[in-house]
Design a protein around this nucleic acid. Structure first.
Lengths: 192, 192
DNA sequence: ACCTGAACACCGTTCAAGT
DNA sequence: ACCTGAACACCGTTCAAGT
């Protein structure tokens, strides 16, 4: 009998996400993973939404800590670290989409974005829009990455390898979109 | 007894979405709306995912048709029309996110984006990235719009009106983000 | 303090049976 | 051809009851 606590529940949930995806993440599945009954989980967590918030908040905390392991962290580093941490948990972008962005570390990351955008010259009334654009970019990008890595491996199609279209490397693609956004921010700020 | 067909099911589903949102959109709720039992729906549609695809495909078709009601449609018009049609159905962005983008009209819209991006000088290997960026921007933007319009009306807070922070008009915000992306595309293309 | 059995109010989907 | 009753295999959540 392991000790069941929030940590253990979080770990079991992450394990299910990374092996079977969010569609298989039921309270009953988490409980089974911990050799316990579903009802027991509610002694440790409020509900499933609370669990989702803990997952997204945990990711946000790790992003925040890695972010500040460098002298002068900027938006480029935020996005790189954010993407890397999202990729560590299958379907994490969906979890972010399904939770309100008001937990402590997640709020810190938003504040970091807004501060840096303002510093880059984004007009105050549009920092939220630009911040959402960045946030949604990384969430959507990782969501697409994880989606296609599932589709590609399930519907294995040899013709894809003969295809003359050379798909860009995911890292390059991510950076292309980021550069595009950063360039756009610079232009908008000059003209503002 | 109304005649129950795909059209009627689609209409009932849309009605539920616009009154109660996607969380209330169950097969049983759709059936009840049509004075029929849930099992009957499966005589007309394959399953719930099929219904989701019909909803997103219907939106895509209307976007495509409105798009071509003008002489030389461009990406600006695509995004404006897309946003307008998404806003007509509550939670439509989530429906797009939960369906594969391989239906006919939806494919046409993607092709339209890719063609125009290439014409703007986006390198071939990055047209998909830029297209996804645009697509995800409008989906995320409308999703946020619909989310906050729900939160604001439920947790009515008078202090928000006294707040000195002037939030930008949604239309202006949307255009700001679009201009940012378009400006970024132009810069990337010059340097490419 | 922590866990469970049992139940409640739901899901999507199938299928033999009805008309 | 079209609809339904009944069932199957699930959900999240609650709560009295157990230890």
């Amino acid at each position: 009998m392991m000790k069941i606590d929030q940590q253990a529940i979080l770990k079991a949930a992450t394990e299910i996400l990374n092996t079977k995806g969010i569609a298989a993440l039921s309270m009953r599945a988490i409980a089974a993973n911990l050799d316990v009954k579903a009802a027991s989980l509610y002694f440790h967590i409020k509900n499933k939404n609370d669990l989702f918030e803990q997952i997204s908040e945990g990711i946000s905390q790790r992003v925040f800590e890695k972010l500040n392991r460098v002298d002068e962290p900027d938006l480029q580093r935020l996005m790189d670290v954010f993407r890397a941490e999202l990729k560590r948990i299958q379907d994490s972008p969906q979890i972010f989409s399904n939770t309100a962005p008001f937990t402590p570390y997640r709020t810190r990351l938003i504040q970091f974005s807004l501060d840096h955008l303002q510093q880059l010259g984004v007009p105050q009334q549009f920092t939220a829009t630009a911040g959402n654009l960045l946030n949604n970019y990384v969430l959507s990008f990782v969501s697409d990455e994880q989606y296609f890595s599932r589709v590609d491996s399930s519907t294995f199609d040899e013709s894809q390898f003969k295809s003359p279209i050379n798909m860009a490397d995911p890292d390059d693609s991510f950076q292309y979109g980021l550069n595009l956004i950063f360039a756009g921010i610079r232009v908008q700020s000059k003209n503002g």
